[in-house]
């Protein structure tokens, strides 16, 4: 069984979510990576280490390469007939998967938290805010297309090397491929990142104002924690989207997740409920966040957080 995994280049080589899917695929058989972007020797070595036996390098394609990448993938899957193409559910991969599905007229299943590679790629996904697990089987011919939520699998190095690299220049996608990126802005600050930090401290509507987000940062600093946010305060413009945790933001699984003034809407729970330990601070004893918290403190974040920050600083 040959499974293809689509991976995009980031500033630091292959993206972590794709490596998670790649190492899972490689643990069940042969895995082939389709890599979009600048494929340095180092990037190829990383793909090999996480289990890719072959890499198809997709090069070129303009500023928004999804249309061209989908066109190239459609040609490649026609020629090579893989059983499945798995994608990590990130921005560009989502665009490529959707376009490819339409192009080859095959369904794509999104939001997978597990893929049974040995069982026809049956997909497990969460519905109703993660309270129910649905298992969906493909009923038509392949290739089966799946979008996998980040952090569903752990990225494990397998110590392999790539033994075949094929370069595939992307075709001209015409009008569909014509948008241009005229400027790029990085909003995410330096320091601990949501994807890798051991501790994450997040703020929600209960902070009351954009200024109060500094209470979160004051606790994060002595803990070396990454800072997160709910969709509500991102939509309100208090903090940048890069901090958003939840269904439409990032999925995180830290050792400890500290939710401050977060009610626990389904949207948010989906992104953080698999954290190893959860602490919640909220003045509403009925807040749903308490039903998933290992430790809940009923109190006002404006009182609790400054005391917590001071206590932690005193220990340094």
């Amino acid at each position: 069984m040959v499974t293809w995994v689509f991976a995009e280049a980031t500033e630091r080589g292959p993206g972590e979510p794709a490596l998670e899917v790649l190492s899972e695929a490689a643990s069940h058989g042969e895995a082939i990576a389709v890599y979009l972007g600048e494929a340095s020797d180092q990037a190829l070595a990383v793909l090999g280490a996480y289990g890719a036996s072959t890499v198809f390098k997709l090069t070129g394609g303009g500023d928004l390469p999804a249309a061209a990448a989908a066109a190239a993938l459609a040609e490649l899957v026609e020629r090579e007939a893989p059983a499945a193409v798995l994608f990590a559910q990130t921005y560009t991969s989502r665009d490529v998967a959707g376009r490819l599905a339409a192009r080859i007229d095959r369904p794509v299943i999104s939001n997978a938290v597990d893929v049974a590679i040995d069982d026809g790629y049956a997909v497990t996904s969460e519905i109703f805010g993660g309270t129910q697990l649905v298992r969906t089987a493909f009923s038509g011919p392949g290739p089966h297309l799946v979008l996998v939520r980040p952090k569903s699998f752990s990225a494990e190095e397998r110590g392999g090397t790539v033994n075949r690299v094929e370069e595939y220049p992307l075709p001209d996608a015409g009008h569909a491929g014509s948008p241009q990126v005229v400027d790029t802005t990085v909003e995410q600050a330096e320091g601990p990142q949501l994807g890798s930090a051991k501790v994450i401290i997040s703020g929600g509507r209960g902070l009351g104002s954009a200024e109060a987000y500094s209470l979160i940062e004051d606790v994060a600093e002595p803990l070396g924690a990454a800072t997160g946010a709910t969709r509500a305060i991102v939509d309100a413009g208090w903090v940048p989207y890069a901090k958003q945790v939840g269904q439409t933001g990032k999925t995180v699984k830290p050792e400890v997740y500290i939710a401050c003034g977060v009610s626990g809407a389904m949207q948010h729970l989906v992104g953080m409920k698999d954290s190893k330990r959860i602490v919640a601070i909220n003045k509403d004893p009925e807040a749903p966040i308490f039903s998933v918290a290992d430790l809940g403190v009923i109190g006002d974040v404006h009182n609790v957080l400054p005391r917590l920050a001071e206590e932690l600083r005193g220990r340094d």
């Binding site: 697990l133 969906t136 089987a137 009923s139 809940g296 005391r307």
Partner: peptide
């Protein structure tokens, strides 16, 4: 091109200890 095979409740997280702040929550 796909069919739902099963639907099952997800393993539930147990709610843990909940305390009133009372000035010592931190």
């Amino acid at each position: 091109g796909q069919r739902i095979v099963s639907v099952a409740p997800a393993p539930e997280r147990q709610a843990g200890e909940v305390v009133e702040d009372g000035g010592t929550g931190h």
